[in-house]
Amino acid sequence: MLASFLQFVFSGITVGSIYALCGLGFSIIFNASHVINFAQGEFIMIGGMATVSLVALGVPLPVAILLAILATMLVGFALEKFAVEPARKASVTTLIIITIGASIFLRGIAQELWDKNFHKLPPFSGDQPFLIAGASLMPQSLWVIGVTVVVIVGLGWFFNRTLEGKAMLATSFNTLAAQLVGVNTKKVLLMSFGLSAMLGAIGGIVITPITFTNYETGIMLGLKGFSAAVLGGLGNGMGAVVGGLIVGIAEAMAAGYFSSAYKDAVAFIIILFVLFFMPSGLFGKSGTERV
């Protein structure tokens, strides 16, 4: 009995870390612009697919990963420069529709540039599961969890210790004030897209050995990542991680103890319930509205 419970926990943590990694990117762009980037899932897809195709060309995995992350960041910069920046004065809703258009556009390119088949990457450290008290955990799950932790620590350092990070943080609190003290908020926005593209790509690469990838991978992961980010409280990196883990573990527990058909519904009911009592998510700022 304990073994099954532990197995559900492992499943939940594996899936939850995947959602968390996907959710982090939403938070960063939201911080800089208050825009929900619906093309975030496509960053995840591009990271995974680019790595797969580079590996297929004979590029060694570490180099392929690096190149894929760079390529995804370029896409992120381009998205900001050519689609978001020109419409900077538009309403947030309009900007969201632009990112939806971008996601359709990027999927359209991906299906022609690559193909519609599913692809895989080999697990980074083999596929011999660890057995812990009768439950099993794949090494790749540890990679996902580990990368999530590293990303969190790295983001903490970036936002609190570097000038660029502090500028981004300042912009998220008050754009006008940040501008007044000399922060180039345009550059901050560009950086936020690059950074979240990087996070998306890293996530997409490290989860591909578990979930596989194809040109449509980003849709579902983007949705779950968004849910995780909102549950945790938008703009809070730690919140996105906690949100992702809650959604992942709720799904696994629901599948294990209740009904696998309704496991996704259970996760969304939990999110709704939390929002009813904490309207800004678990760790969100409950800002006052300016009149």
Binding site: A90, I98, G101, A102, G108, E112
Partner: peptide, 22 residues
Amino acid sequence: EDYEAMILGAIMMGTMIFMPRG
């Protein structure tokens, strides 16, 4: 044909960029 999605996405983006109010 195969470029359907790409063009649909581009039209959506382009319209919203140049006509942000719709």
